[in-house]
Structures are given as structure tokens and as C-alpha cells.
Design a protein around this nucleic acid. Structure first.
Lengths: 301, 301
DNA sequence: GGACATTATTGCGCCTTTTGCAATAGATAG
DNA sequence: CTATCTATTGCAAAAGGCGCAATAATGTCC
């Protein structure tokens, strides 16, 4: 195949201009480069495209059909290029998002609705799950997660906002089992663990005074991969849970839950956005991230 | 526009193979060239086409639509190239021929019919005229002419066969006006001139013995641009005409005309094929010329 | 978990290709 | 015939492409 697209464009220019020199002037090149472009094209095709003397240039039959068929093709290539370019600059396309289940149901409807109103050209697909999916494999454009460190190495991520967590239990539970004064006391308590089936969870509480971490080996009587259900279990006097504040703020306010071991901090976790390995994020992804960041800025996390 | 068609093909190969290295192996190139091709393409488009780590390569949205739209376009370009190539090798296309009027009506029907039977893929268009048309201007692929020297410099030509000519007159005319014994005698005769309106014709007769040319300034009583009519006028006792043998062979045999000044030769003229300025003739033109040459070889010119 | 293998990328040297300029041959207009 | 414009080609300089090897990243297999 003729390797050089520029040669084809030069050919079209010559056919339009009706001469090598005119085409060269129109394209801002030297005449010799035009001669060579046509000559290369002809020899690569094995066909003469122009019958020419030094004064007249006319398409051969091969050249005429080549011109007629190539013209729309080259135009189409230009259109394809433009449409590809648009992905970087324009707010368009399809956005497949994954977000944590509880976070999604609690906070996402507002920002997403606003985003859809602002950018109707972007098709949104939101998948709520707490599993750490392989972004590449599942073909997500972005995954919001509440986590400590990136799980998947083949992604890039951007921390959005720290998520505060608290140890909580119901007043009735604390009345019945006592209120722990030190992380080591937790060993004797019923701890409610956020965890997927296979994994266990270790609470690494850090001393507010010394900053020293204190790993807690609890006995879990109940484990669940859903924060909302964990909160409801804590409210139902089932034990002590470590949960994001936004999941238990209401219950704390109503007195359904009380904070436990106030001052002892669990490891910092962040609302984080994960992306497939892009060098530079496409406009739609960038804008959606900005929308989430802005919406989350005012949220009590 | 992305200048390199090969880059696009490399892109398609990577998308098909699902990896840079695999594509490189399939194409027989080094992996680095593939990396650079994709990188060039991406930076010329300003869009990332693949999201990639060292282990996974996947199309971005921009890359996917680029792939889907480019694939048929590249295939079309290959098809266009092939169809252009076919003009050189295959016997196809349209052939616009110009030929002398009398020659055409006397000899062309046979060879052309045979040619059309042999090559039904070639569309023939034959224009019979004795005018020397500008091949480029009139867009002929080939012009057969009976002439001495090429009239148009911006053409290439190929001599096919010499055309013998004779001075002829009717027995009755010669009986009435006498038979010339030397070219200089022609001044006193009624000469029938083949000529276009503007031009005059000079008979340059050469001595069969010495080879010396003898320009004849005749007085033309009748001029015509058609050989057949000139022959008929000679038969009708109107004077002496210089005509190709093939136009008067029948009349000579029947005794309607007699040769005059036998041995004195008019300048050699040739049945000649003229072509637009091709470096190498397309197959159809070449084959048609060969057909004419072969058909004419057995003809009594 | 750790060694291994594979991958995409990049720096570097080499070589090919391209480029513009000038010179040449060709062709038309006045 | 002269003058002007044209397409082509030789030439030297510049640019760009090429593969090789080294590097960093990442998934896999034992």
C-alpha cells in the first residue's frame, strides 16, 4: 500500500491545481518535493497518474479514478481525526463509573443529576459495588473507592477527600458489656467487621497522644461487606463497629449510637478516584472528577 | 492530519493483536518502532488511543471509534490502490482512439471487431477525422495518423508501417492532357490536392536515380480534405492526384486510374500512432497498438 | 512471597530518507 | 527567435526512521 498519506494529499492538490508548480505554491512546498511525491506514488502503484509535459498536466484514467475514489476517503480520514481529537477536548462520550455502594446511595444522586444536566452529551453508567474491581478488565473509566492504598497497580489514582471513621456502639450494648477504655479492651468485645468473605479486617488504632499504632486482634462475631447493614447491627446492640462517619452521623445525633474510644484514630482512609492508565485524562473524566470533588467538598465526611 | 498511513496500519495491528510486542512480531518490526508509531499518532491527534501498562493494552474510547472508523477506510485505500494497479496490468478501462477517416473506413472495422471480441473489458471509442487534434486537449488515448513527422511535440509516437503513395490520373484525363514525363511537367496539369482549408500542399518528388528532391509548385484546381473524394474526382477525369495506394488500388486494377511518373517517390509517410506523454503505455493502449500493428502487417499499404 | 519473564518505553548510534536549492531540458506565448 | 514558465534531477545538508540495548513496570509461576 502507498505508505504516505501526504503523498496522496499532494496528488489530490496537483489534480485540483492542474499543475505541479501551482500545487506546490498552494501547499507552500518546493516544486521538487511535489514531483518526488507524485513520482513515489506512481512507482509504488506501478501506474502513471498524470500524463504530463512541462506545460500541461492531465490525469490519466488510472489517475482520474484514483482521484475520484481517494477524495472522499481522505476527507473521511480528516473527519475521523477530528472526531478523535474531540474526545480530548469536548465533553462527550460514554462514562462508565464504579462507586462504593453506601457512598453512592448516600451522596451520589445529587452530583450526578447536576452533572447530567450540565453535560447532556455525556452518557453515564454507574455501577455501585464495594468490590475492588480491575478497572481495565471491567472497562471502567473511573472508580471511586474509600480505601487506604491503591489495590491495583495498573491504575492511576487521585485522592479526593479523607473519610473520618469512628468506633461506635449502641448505648444498650455499652451498658451491657462495658465501655472499652483502651484498644486492648476490644478483645473482649463483640466487634462488627466490614469485610469481604475471604479477608479479615484488622483495626490499627493509633494513640492520639503518642501516635503509636496499636493493632487490635478482635474476635468478630459478625462480618458484612455492607456498611449500612453494619450500622444497623450496631444500632441493634450487636457490638462495636468501625464505620465512616457519614454512615453513622444520623444515629449518633439521635443517640442510637455512641462513639467509643474517642481520640483513637483508625488509619486514615480516603475517598479516592481510580482511573485506567491514562497519561492525560479525557475531558469527560476530568470534568466528572471535578464535579465529584466539588460536591464532596461541602459534605460532612 | 496524521501524515503516516503506516502509523494507522500499525495502530490497527496493535488493536487487533492486543499488544505492542505481539503486533511488532506479526509485522516483523521492532517493538520500539511500534511504540513510536502509536506515540506519534497519539500526539498528532492529541488523544490517547490506548490505555496501557507494560502488561495490558486496551483501546480508549477515542481509540475504539478511531479503530472502528479507520478499519474500513484503510481497507478501501488498499482496494483503491489495487484498482489503480490494475490499469497498468489488466486489459480494462476506456480507450478513446482517433484515426484517419479514409483509413478508418477502409481497414479498421476488422481489427477493431476482433479486438473487441478478444477484450470485452475495454470500452472503445473511435473518432474518425483527418484533422491533427491535440491529443491532450481532446483527451484521446491514442491517435492513428498518416503523416510525415509528429505535429504535436507533447506527444510520443510510434511508427507502424510506411504508406506508399502514387500519382494517379484517369486514362481519359491523360489522353486529353498528355502524360507528364517529369515533375516539372506537372505545373501545366490540373492537380488535385489533399489539404485542409488553410494549408497548401507541396509535392516533393524525389528522383529514383539520383535521390534528389524536386519540389513541385502546382496549380490546384481542386482541393479536398478527404482522400476518397479526391480519388473519385481523379476517376472522373478531374486531374492528377497524389494518394495512398490503398485508396486507389481498386481503381488501378480496374483501369479507372493509371499511375503517373512511376518511380518518382513522394516523401515517405508513415502510419503512425500518437500517444499522450506516457512514460510507459497502459496495457490496454499497448495491446490495441499491437492489434493494429498485426492487422496492418498483412495489408497492402 | 520472590525469582522470572514479558512488556512498553527511551536513549543512542547508524543509516536511510527527505528537503530545498540550483541546474537542466522541455514547451508554449509573444 | 527569445523569454518565461514548467517538470525533473543532481547534490549536499538536515531530518527522521530504524533496531539494539538498557530500564522500569507488571503479571505469573513455582
Amino acid at each position: 500500500m502507498s505508505g504516505q498519506l501526504e503523498h496522496i494529499q499532494t496528488f489530490l492538490a496537483v489534480a485540483d491545481a492542474g499543475g505541479f508548480a501551482r500545487a506546490a505554491r498552494k501547499m507552500g512546498n518546493s516544486a521538487s518535493s511535489v514531483t518526488r511525491a507524485i513520482s513515489d506514488l506512481e512507482s509504488s502503484l506501478g501506474v502513471q497518474l498524470f500524463k504530463r509535459t512541462t506545460r500541461k498536466v492531465a490525469l490519466t484514467q488510472a489517475g482520474l479514478t484514483y482521484y475520484q475514489r481517494m477524495l472522499p476517503v481522505v476527507a473521511e480520514i480528516a473527519r475521523i481525526d477530528d472526531s478523535a481529537r474531540a474526545y480530548q477536548t469536548d465533553l462527550q462520550g460514554r462514562l462508565r463509573i464504579s462507586a462504593p455502594l453506601s457512598f453512592g446511595t448516600h451522596f451520589l444522586s445529587g452530583p450526578i443529576a447536576a452533572f447530567r444536566r450540565a453535560h447532556p452529551g455525556i452518557d453515564l453508567s454507574v455501577n455501585l459495588t464495594d468490590r475492588f474491581v480491575d478497572i481495565m478488565q471491567a472497562d471502567y473509566d473511573m472508580a471511586l473507592r474509600i480505601s487506604g492504598a491503591p489495590a491495583d497497580r495498573s491504575t492511576i489514582w487521585r485522592k479526593i477527600k479523607p473519610v473520618r471513621r469512628s468506633l461506635v456502639a449502641s448505648p444498650a450494648y455499652l451498658a451491657g458489656h462495658g465501655t472499652p477504655a483502651h484498644p486492648s479492651d476490644l478483645t473482649a468485645h463483640a466487634c462488627l467487621s466490614y469485610t469481604h468473605l475471604a479477608e479479615g479486617e484488622v483495626w490499627e488504632l493509633s494513640d492520639p497522644a503518642t501516635g503509636a499504632t496499636h493493632p487490635v486482634r478482635q474476635t468478630f462475631r459478625f462480618a458484612c461487606n455492607n456498611g449500612d447493614l453494619l450500622a444497623q447491627m450496631a444500632i441493634a446492640d450487636q457490638g462495636i463497629a468501625l464505620l465512616p462517619n457519614f454512615l453513622v452521623a444520623d444515629a449518633l445525633e439521635r443517640g442510637q449510637l455512641d462513639p467509643v474510644l474517642v481520640g483513637w484514630d483508625a488509619p486514615e482512609i480516603w475517598l479516592t478516584a481510580f482511573y485506567p492508565p491514562y497519561q492525560k485524562l479525557p475531558a469527560a473524566m476530568d470534568r466528572f472528577t471535578a464535579a465529584i470533588e466539588q460536591a464532596v467538598a461541602d459534605l460532612p465526611l
